[in-house]
Simulated assay, not measured.
Amino acid sequence: MKLLHFVSLFMQRARLKLLFLGVTMLAVPVASTAPVYASDRVFLNAKSAIVMDADTHQVIYAKNPDLQLYPASTTKLMTAILLVTHLNPKDPVYISKEAASQPRVRLGLKSGTTITADDALRAVIMKSANDVAYAVAETVGGSQQGFARMMNLKARLLGCTHTNFVTPNGLHDDAHKTTSRDVALILAEAVKYPRIVAAMQTKDYSIAGKPFHNGNRMLYVTNTTYGQTIGGKTGYTSKAMYCLAFAVKQHGHTRVSVVLGAPRKSFMYRETRRLLDWSYRDKAVQLV
Results as ranks from 00 to 15, higher is better:
K249S: 10
L275C: 01
P35E: 08
K265E: 15
D53G: 08
V59W: 07
N64G: 00
A198F: 06
R270H: 14
S101P: 04
D282A: 15
S101D: 14
Y193A: 12
R281E: 12
K203L: 03
G215Q: 13
A148L: 09
R149L: 11
S101G: 06
T163F: 03
L157F: 02
H251A: 15
A190E: 11
V191W: 07
P29S: 05
T74P: 07
L275R: 05
V28M: 13
M150H: 09
T79Q: 02
V36C: 09
D53L: 06
A198P: 09
L185F: 11
T234M: 04
A117L: 09
L260F: 12
G252T: 03
G232N: 01
V166F: 05
V132C: 05
P194C: 05
M52G: 05
I186R: 08
K2R: 14
V166R: 01
I125Y: 02
R281F: 10
T224N: 12
L44M: 03
V197C: 00
G261S: 00
D66N: 12
T254Q: 12
V59G: 10
R264N: 13
L121D: 05
T24P: 03
K154N: 08
K2P: 10
M241Y: 11
L158M: 13
A14H: 06
M151R: 00
A129W: 04
D173I: 10
L219R: 08
K90M: 14
A190V: 00
E98L: 01
G108P: 00
